[in-house]
């Protein structure tokens, strides 16, 4: 259970319209990721679904029931905050038990549920500690535990990993994905990190300035971005955009080529330039190429064994079958 429908939902702060009327459906059991640059309205949208922010207009339905006027705790959703928002004066046990206690559940049942949640999140040894005595990853788990015990019809995550260091982030990412596989509950996840979006989502919702730019599966977005914004946002390193004569050859205003779709050679190729910076990651090498006459910098991704250095002249050949063509308004066409 947990089909969430947004119907012409909009939000104004004073006179500023941060989210123009917008429609979106998240299917039951789906893992949806809202992604976009900071200030695009993704967190606001999430908070509106949670009930923490009023709607200026429109309706929100959960499982066919209009919840627009329903207070947050009665919507059957649980939220994990960016700052974790644990209650600092309560032990881990009490933190996790808190929503159940507020529901008025009998103590014995609460204990059972808390134990079970702690078990699944490896928190048994920490139940009597205060949040301040926990590491970032453990706090994150407690926040998730507090969400799980309520057995919600949907989980909302507001940039939950952004306060963790890089290694932990990868670990927690996997844990959340596993959790979703296991529970098959609707999850909405907000992030500005396109890697998180690509790796976790069933459905990505790309937002810019409160407007949905594209909705689709990660691979749809990668293969067929609707416009230049989505094309530039999804994929790392970013897609190269080339305008002018070279684009005109393909009958487009702008063409886009992903760094991994360019072949490099020391001797011959369609384009020519000078390596300004080379980054060797071991598995891959990235080259930032100047003086191509096409764009300021062309970024290229090659295998780890390719060893060009700063100042080397390099030849580039784009793969013709994966060149993206955009018209003058930035929309992609075939």
């Amino acid at each position: 259970m947990g089909r969430i429908v947004l119907d012409k939902v909009s939000k104004k702060f004073g006179d500023v319209e941060v989210i123009p009327p917008l429609d979106l459906t998240i299917e039951d059991g789906e893992f949806a990721v809202f992604v976009g640059p900071s200030g695009c309205g993704k967190s606001t949208l999430l908070r509106m679904i949670a009930g923490l922010e009023d709607l200026t207009s429109g309706d929100i339905e959960i499982d066919g029931e209009n919840v627009t006027q329903v207070p947050p705790s009665k919507r059957g959703l649980a939220m994990v905050f960016q700052s974790y928002a644990l209650y600092p004066h309560m032990s881990v046990r009490k933190n996790i038990a808190f929503p159940l206690r507020m529901e008025g559940m009998p103590q014995a049942e609460i204990d059972k549920k808390v134990e079970a949640a702690a078990e699944s999140l490896n928190l048994n040894d920490y139940l009597e500690r205060k949040p301040a005595a926990l590491s970032g990853g453990q706090r994150q788990r407690v926040a998730i535990g507090r969400a799980i015990v309520r057995n919600p019809s949907g989980f909302l995550f507001d940039e939950p990993l952004s306060n963790l260091d890089a290694a932990l982030r990868v670990g927690m990412r996997l844990e959340i994905s596993e959790m979703h596989e296991r529970m098959q509950t609707t999850m909405i996840y907000v992030t500005h990190d396109q890697v998180e979006a690509m790796t976790m989502a069933d459905k990505i919702v790309v937002l810019r300035a409160g407007v949905i730019e594209q909705v689709g599966s990660p691979l749809d977005l990668y293969r067929a971005p609707r416009n230049k914004f989505v094309a530039g946002f999804i994929g790392s390193p970013k897609m190269n955009f080339i305008e002018g004569e070279e684009a005109a050859k393909h009958g487009a205003h702008t063409i886009g080529v992903r760094p991994e779709h360019i072949e490099v050679s020391a001797s011959s190729g369609a384009w020519k330039g000078v390596v300004s910076v080379s980054e060797h990651l071991g598995s891959d090498s990235f080259f930032h190429v100047h003086d191509t006459g096409l764009a300021e910098t062309i970024t290229v991704r090659a295998g780890g064994e390719v060893g060009f250095r700063h100042g080397d002249t390099i030849h580039l050949t784009p793969r013709d079958d994966v060149i993206h063509k955009f018209d003058s308004s930035g929309l992609r066409f075939e």
Binding site: A50, G51, L52, P71, P72, S73, K74, L77, A78, M79, F81, Q82, S83, Y84, A85, L86, Y87, P88, F98, P99, M102, E103, R146, R150
Partner: peptide
């Protein structure tokens, strides 16, 4: 007091007095 904690409380179902 971080606003998040108050909002977490709202999600967890506390009323004003709680």
């Amino acid at each position: 007091i971080p606003k998040d904690i108050i909002e977490a409380g709202q999600m967890d179902g506390v009323n004003t007095w709680g």
